[in-house]
């Protein structure tokens, strides 16, 4: 297979970037998208060029490192798929592939296609945990949890923190990311105790980090590689509302 590649190149945060056009021939349809980029980089390097920087690690769709905006969609044309799981057989031979970094004020570009997602970390630091110390936990089976609830909590907890929701959202809102963690803990008895404080803190931090506001367009759900539902955004809205209305001053 042969492709035309249009890739965003930017040396570092301080310099201005631009698109560069390349052609790449002899791509195997069995290659994953990132293998295609490896192959492309190998060519660039041997020809004396600078390889395209992109982030990746596990290459099996679970670490959340990779994330490229491919032909107008985060992680490319397939649903429930990360960039590393995408394969070249999904593309039409001879077509042009446009590869862009995530675009959001909260995700500044570091180099080429690599962005800084530490704003996600900040939100997690604000309250994405259960305040429990090591040791002294009761036997795990002393707290029964309804299977459906536990399964739902798992459905929220599968978030890989890749940032596709922000990249897909026209407002670059982080509502899906934040709500997944808020909901996971709010559903489970272990996290319920501090659910109100948690949602207030995490939402406040989310606002601080410069993400846009959710306007219920649901592009996030559509492009989430783990298929996380916007029902969790609703749950966050609910949790936040009741936290604001019911919480005490001190």
């Amino acid at each position: 297979m042969n492709f035309k590649l249009k890739i965003w190149r930017q040396k570092n945060a301080a310099t201005k970037g631009k698109f560069e056009d390349y052609t790449l021939n002899d791509v195997s349809p069995e290659m994953s998208f990132l293998q295609m980029l490896d192959y492309f980089n190998d060519k660039l390097i041997t020809e004396g060029g600078q390889p395209v920087h992109f982030e990746h690690d596990c290459r099996e769709g679970i670490c959340g490192s990779c994330g490229l905006y491919i032909n107008g969609r985060p992680h490319g044309p397939l649903r429930n798929t990360t960039t590393c799981e995408l394969h070249m057989r999904e593309f039409e031979d001879g077509s042009t592939i446009v590869i862009e970094p995530w675009r959001s004020r909260a995700f500044p570009i570091i180099k080429d296609l690599v962005v800084d997602r530490s704003s996600f970390e900040e939100v997690m630091l604000a309250g994405g945990f259960v305040n429990i110390n090591t040791g002294g936990a009761l036997d795990a089976n002393t707290t029964p949890i309804n299977k459906k609830i536990s399964d739902r909590a798992f459905d929220a907890a599968v978030c890989i923190g890749c940032g596709a929701c922000v990249a897909a959202c026209k407002n670059s809102s982080a509502a899906l990311f934040v709500s997944a963690k808020v909901s996971q803990f709010a559903m489970l008895p272990q996290g319920k105790t501090e659910a109100a404080e948690r949602v207030e803190k995490m939402v406040a931090k989310m606002d601080d980090m410069g993400f846009g506001f959710c306007s219920n367009t649901y592009a996030c759900e559509f492009d989430c590689p783990k298929g996380i539902s916007v029902e969790f955004i609703a749950q966050m809205n609910r949790e936040f509302f009741s936290a604001k209305v019911c919480s005490h001053k001190k």
Partner: peptide
Amino acid sequence: SRPVGYHVKPKSG
């Protein structure tokens, strides 16, 4: 919140 937009028109569903 998105000072620089995308080159390709977003196709997210």
